[in-house]
């Protein structure tokens, strides 16, 4: 679907993208993560055909995005980070207008239904709430029935229930067999939705793969509990990775055996391990470790 290698782009002598390699497969939800200013939008806009590149190779649906054709554009749906459609047209009119650009559009009613705007279909765009406008944005990207959908920070500024709704919509796109290229800075969003993720930092990809398999020191489970009263850290059967205000953190690669040793020790010595929990390695940990500069 998308393959890019060695993408480069500079603005006024500053290199924003320094040799990015990406591989997005058909039918997957691919999340592209990175802090603001890391080169996310520049990379995405090169792939969308909005920007030219200074170097590297790119193929999107088999076409070099530097030379976008109408045929190619009709196979791609784009949701920009922020855009407000014409305020004076209704939702239905706007969708009908865009549908007319494509060779085989979806029926407007179906799209309106799918993004949850059926009740607002005859409202003017200028009268929609922020969340509704965002859903219209997504609807406009879907009306041409594209194979590949670019979503640039689709849930920024959403309340939690609106985010859930958007997630269901994106998950539904996968069910329809669409390939989704999702840009986000919410780790839970990527963890929830993505088959594979890539993390960009300072214009370079620092990790790429399924969310659960991204490496780094933090890809370890954490056992947490409160140190029982009258027990010193040295008395524990395992060496704490961190101990602050009696809060013990023990990082382990596989939790089963260490957890067994710990609980056996506690039961035998009559200690209660208050607040005992095992934390799975989260994408957020990996992300923070990979994107924070040393010393930060």
């Amino acid at each position: 679907m998308i393959s890019a290698s060695g993408l480069r782009k500079s603005y006024g002598g500053v290199e924003a993208v320094k040799g990015v390699d990406l591989e997005v497969r058909a039918g997957e939800v691919f999340a592209f993560l990175g802090p603001n200013g890391a080169g996310k939008t520049t990379t995405v806009e090169i792939l969308e055909g909005y920007r030219d590149r200074d170097g590297g190779e790119a193929r999107v649906l088999g076409v070099d995005p530097v030379h976008p054709t109408r045929r190619w554009r009709s196979r791609i749906g784009i949701v920009l980070q922020s855009s407000k459609p014409d305020a004076y047209l209704t939702v239905r009119e706007t969708l009908a207008e865009y549908a007319g650009f494509y060779p085989e559009p979806r029926p407007v009613n179906e799209i309106v239904e799918r993004v949850g705007l059926a009740d607002s279909a005859d409202k003017r765009v200028g009268k929609l709430s922020g969340g509704q406008q965002r859903r219209l944005d997504v609807a406009l990207a879907l009306v041409g029935d594209p194979e590949l959908v670019f979503l640039d920070e689709p849930t920024t500024g959403f309340d939690p229930s609106a985010r859930r709704g958007a997630w269901e919509l994106i998950a539904a796109l996968r069910e329809l067999g669409k390939t989704v290229f999702l840009t986000t800075h919410y780790m839970d969003e990527a963890q929830e939705l993505a088959d594979r993720v890539a993390i960009i930092r300072d214009g370079e990809i620092v990790a790429q793969g399924p969310p659960g398999e991204l490496g780094g020191r933090s890809a370890r489970h954490r056992i947490r509990f409160l140190l029982p009263r009258g027990v010193a850290a040295a008395d524990l059967p395992l060496r704490p990775t961190d101990l602050r205000d009696r809060r013990v953190v023990i990082e382990v690669e596989r939790p089963l055996e260490p957890l067994n040793r710990l609980t056996t020790w506690a039961i035998e010595n009559g200690h209660d391990l208050t607040d005992l929990e095992v934390e799975r390695p989260s994408l957020e940990d990996v992300y923070l470790e990979l994107t924070e500069a040393p010393g930060e």
């Binding site: 969308e48 055909g49 109408r70 045929r71 554009r73 784009i78 920009l80 014409d86 494509y102 060779p103």
Partner: peptide, 12 residues
Amino acid sequence: NRVLKRLRGTPL
């Protein structure tokens, strides 16, 4: 409002 940008990304 990036309507033109958005239109540029369609087959219009």
